[in-house]
């Protein structure tokens, strides 16, 4: 706990540092020093808002998950392209309740955001106690298959990474 008190969110610190360097778009001594200072200081003064540190089990898996989602975003856009330009009468919009097995609030947030960014689905409501998500699908001919697909493709991976 002692190590935690001066560096409450190591991952957030790293992330803020990278954001700062990208923002400045150069890699000089001043930028690195100020970036390191801010990256250390900001998590310390905002820790009250974020008491639980999201725990990443495997950085490599997280990286692969991000690539997977990026690929799926491109694919989802191709699909949306076709659905929007095609006849709207052929769409099968549907409300879907998806049960989830994640406990960590941060993991639930990641899952909900991933679902909103990818295949024709938007997360509308996170159920109380994080046990289910309410999803609106633009075109779901088979809601059960869609839920199975989302669970297999994203939820299991997120569970491996964060829990």
């Amino acid at each position: 706990m002692a190590a935690r008190s001066w560096l409450p969110h190591p991952n957030l610190t790293l992330f803020l540092f990278i954001v700062w360097v990208l923002l400045m778009n150069t890699l000089s001594v001043g930028v690195v020093l100020l970036g390191a200072l801010l990256a250390w200081w900001l998590p310390s003064i905002t820790r009250a808002f974020w008491p639980e540190v999201p725990h990443v089990n495997s950085g490599w898996k997280l990286f692969r998950f991000m690539l997977l989602v990026l690929g799926d975003i491109v694919h989802a856009n191709m699909v949306a392209f076709r659905l929007i330009l095609g006849p709207t009468r052929k769409l099968h919009p549907a409300w879907i309740e998806m049960p989830i097995d994640l406990d960590d609030p941060f993991a639930v947030t990641v899952l909900a955001s991933t679902i909103s960014l990818t295949p024709g689905t938007v997360t509308v409501e996170v159920g109380r106690g994080h046990h289910k998500l309410l999803i609106h699908a633009l075109n779901a001919e088979d809601p059960d298959a869609l839920v199975a697909h989302l669970k297999a493709r994203y939820e299991t991976r997120i569970k491996e990474i964060f829990e």
Partner: peptide, 18 residues
Amino acid sequence: RLPDFFQRLHGPTKATTL
């Protein structure tokens, strides 16, 4: 073009990101 509010919501979340 899409018929209702929730369907229209799909445009900005996906097409615009890409």
